[in-house]
Design a protein around this nucleic acid. Structure first.
Lengths: 234, 234
DNA sequence: GACTGTGAAAAGTTTCACAGCT
DNA sequence: AGCTGTGAAACTTTTCACAGTC
């Protein structure tokens, strides 16, 4: 790696802290899990990096490299046993565990989330819901009884909740997230269009359809994206 | 730019095709727009890369570099005029235009999307909705009348729709996307948990809360992410 | 004095290409 | 023969650091 002919002294060659897996790699694993699940459902018993790459639109080399961070799951000359690789990846991601999830905010969006059937099949269980509007407290939404915010700490502890989905108005989001962090929550899925600040070690992912749309319009302008000065207004 | 003392020969130093802006840069611009809007609402007249970086949790250098792909928007020694930079970025992203958007699929999710008030303030107008379930056709949802799929091509053309939001079951998503592409749609926001295949030049962004959750559980396992047999310390 | 804009260095990520196992 | 696993190369993205400008 130190191929640079210059530089007389010691070069720190290992860029990555040993044992650390790049975050981009982690972010791709769930997609591998999904494809493997589909292959399993379709009755496929073996696959290979070529086939997986086609499904995901990435190069076979990338898939092999990603997997190599965790071990050697394939058989040379044959490929991967779908069921085995799926089990390994789920294990790595912690998807063999069941995860209890709290939803904070039971407005229109929170309601939709609590009624959405797509989380449970993947091992996520929405087991609690909180709202600061007393009119909502006590209501039954998606099989869960809405509790007041004051009960959050207790319930999070009692029910071993480690993940929260935040669906409150932007103005309240940072406060709610601070409360959740204080309760020991370490992963947050945020639906508000804001950039929440959290301490180190707390993971946040945001669902932000407006940002997604806005990052596409750039490519939609009449005659292609305008380049630095030339091609001005449309 | 200052020292234009170019080298002796022709060196392909620029790895990037000239005039091309990296996609990661584009994906950050909407966030800059959002922060600048907030600063403007808060009455701030000027800002700088330091302040923007704090809000977005990125380095000031990155912000300056990102902006430098498009021009020189700051004043040395002073920073950026909030209003001006905001206008420039909106221009670059095409957010000064109004965009007509179609929603395909008016089930629970499509309903929630059509009733969500968060798109319009940003210049996106949900002006049409389609569903293949005739029981839904003719219903009025979020101020839009649901049309049969068969009318899609006509309506997309008539109403200059260039963006679609797809909220149909996974099994139908690829078919619907193919139809949309055939109608001339070039940007798609997909809510189904699948990896859609589209021709070159068509942009797709997916909203996928399950993938987001699954990419966080890795970091939640009891004693830190396990590394290939051994266990990483925390 | 303060802050931008930007080449150049560093860090990170992807792809290549091939030895080696089945 | 077919495909993995992996060092090394190629490429991309971020960060540094400072000349230049206000």
């Amino acid at each position: 790696m130190t191929s640079s002919s210059s530089g007389p002294g010691i070069r720190p060659v290992t860029a990555l802290p040993p044992g650390e897996v790049p975050e981009v790699v982690i972010s791709r694993l769930p997609q591998y899990v999904r494809i493997l699940s589909q292959l399993l459902d379709a009755g496929e018993e073996v696959t290979n990096s070529q086939q997986l790459g086609e499904q995901l639109q990435v190069t076979p080399a990338q898939i092999r490299k990603d997997l190599s961070y965790f071990g050697r799951f394939g058989k040379q000359g044959r490929g991967y046993v779908v069921r085995d690789l799926l089990r390994e990846l789920k294990q790595i991601l912690g998807l063999n565990s069941e995860w209890n999830v709290a939803v904070v905010g039971v407005g229109r969006l929170g309601n939709a989330i609590l009624n959405y059937p797509g989380f449970n099949p993947d091992g996520f269980h929405l087991v609690a819901a909180f709202d600061n509007n007393l009119a909502n407290v006590g209501r039954e939404v998606g099989g869960v009884s809405v509790q007041p915010m004051a009960e959050m700490a207790q319930t999070v502890a009692d029910r071993s909740i480690s993940i929260a989905i935040v669906a409150v108005p932007s103005a309240h989001t940072q406060t709610v997230i601070d409360q959740l962090v204080a309760c020991g929550i370490r992963a947050i899925l945020n639906y508000a269009p804001i950039n929440a600040q959290v301490p180190d070690g707390i993971r946040v992912r945001s669902i932000d359809p407006v940002l997604a749309l806005q990052s596409m319009t750039y490519y939609l302008t009449e005659d292609g994206p305008s380049i630095n000065g030339s091609t001005a207004a449309r």
